[in-house]
Amino acid sequence: MTSQRTKPFRAGRRLVFVRSIGTLWGQARRSWWADAPSCLVRASYDSAELVREAAGGTSRLRASSGGPRLMGMGAPRSGDALVIVHECGAGARLVMKRGEKDMSEWTWPEDPTDVDLITDGRRIVMRHGRGRLSWFAAESLGPPRPWSLKLVRQALGEVRMHVTGLWDLGDSLVVTTVDTWSQWRWDGELMACWRAPAYELGAVTVVAWHAAGPILYMRVIDPATGEQGSGRDAYRLVVWDPRRGVGRPLGPAHDWPRAARSPDGRWLVADRVTREGRGLELWDMATDTRVERLPTRRRAVEALAFAPDGLHVAVATMEDWFVLRVVPGEE
């Protein structure tokens, strides 16, 4: 039975409701779509859950610290494992779980701050709260090993190496720092690197990564005055061209937006708050045109993921998980 909470998302003509996947019990942190939609959920103070669409419903893999605060979580796109990091007396404890069994674990000194965590099932890459980057071998956990970013400095010159985020692209990963973005193979080989927008404009947040242009949440320069934007509409949703170092603003965004871009780069689906209120939007990136907006009021979207076909998108709210389809319209 389809939840009535999804009603605002079922009113579209270009974003069409297809099916409900199931209910999520917690806050969706990351979503992706390989052979099926998957969602990583912080289920509670001390537990994480990996939820995947399966025949007749969902499959769920859960891991818990048994009490201490969860610091981070991750899962490979294959959906066959779940990794958590949580506080413990010695600092932090990392546990990798497959099925109902804890396959491996490691404890090390660590500040009690949140960490970013991604994995391909063989390597676990972690951003520490102090802006450092480390990795573990998944099947034989040992002390965290440093992930060197010196190749980025060699390519781009003097830049700050304080790591701000990680993005799992499946066959590779992206590391964002205060000054740079870099794409790496999981074995540590550098594939490409770019300068990020000037941090002095204010915090620049990558909302969705895509080779054709990541989607950013950032303060922009007012072209009329040449000054930084201020006031309620100071921050914008921006499509950034990393090779040319320029951005295309898509309009103001209040709060923290969520977005996903289709594999071919054509479509952007974004949840954002503007002066119109909260809405889920469909953008045609070929023309930078908003083709539909579904007013959703308080139905905030937590995570989005496009299917490989570029026309279906999985949407996770605080409680519901469902699939929408993009109707291209007349070409």
Rank of each mutant, 00 (worst) to 15 (best):
S3D: 04
P8I: 09
R10S: 13
R13C: 08
V16K: 15
V16L: 12
F17W: 06
R19D: 07
R19H: 04
T23C: 07
R29D: 01
S31E: 05
W33N: 01
W33A: 00
A34R: 09
D35V: 12
A36W: 09
L40S: 02
D46L: 02
D46N: 09
S47M: 14
G56M: 02
G56F: 00
A63L: 06
G67Y: 01
P68N: 09
M73H: 04
G74Y: 00
G74V: 03
A75Y: 06
P76L: 15
D80I: 05
I84L: 08
E87K: 15
C88P: 01
S104D: 15
E105T: 06
E105K: 10
V115K: 02
T119E: 14
G121W: 13
I124S: 11
H128W: 11
H128E: 15
G129D: 04
S140R: 15
L141Y: 02
P143V: 10
R145T: 06
W147E: 03
W147F: 09
L149D: 10
L151C: 08
Q154P: 07
A155S: 11
R160S: 05
M161D: 14
V163H: 01
T164Q: 14
L166S: 07
L169A: 06
V175Y: 08
T177I: 09
Q183C: 10
D187W: 07
M191I: 12
P197N: 03
G202M: 02
V207A: 05
A211G: 15
A212K: 04
A212R: 06
Y217F: 13
R219L: 06
I221D: 11
I221F: 10
I221N: 14
P223W: 11
T225L: 00
Q228K: 11
D233N: 15
L237N: 07
V239S: 12
P242C: 07
V246I: 12
G247D: 05
L250G: 11
A253N: 01
A253R: 08
D255N: 14
A260W: 02
R261L: 12
S262A: 14
V269N: 07
D271F: 09
T274R: 14
G277M: 03
G277V: 00
G277S: 08
E281P: 01
E281N: 08
L282I: 01
W283N: 03
L304T: 02
F306M: 06
A307I: 06
L311P: 00
L311F: 00
H312F: 08
W321N: 02
F322A: 03
V323I: 13
V326T: 02
V327N: 09
V327A: 14
P328S: 13
E330P: 10
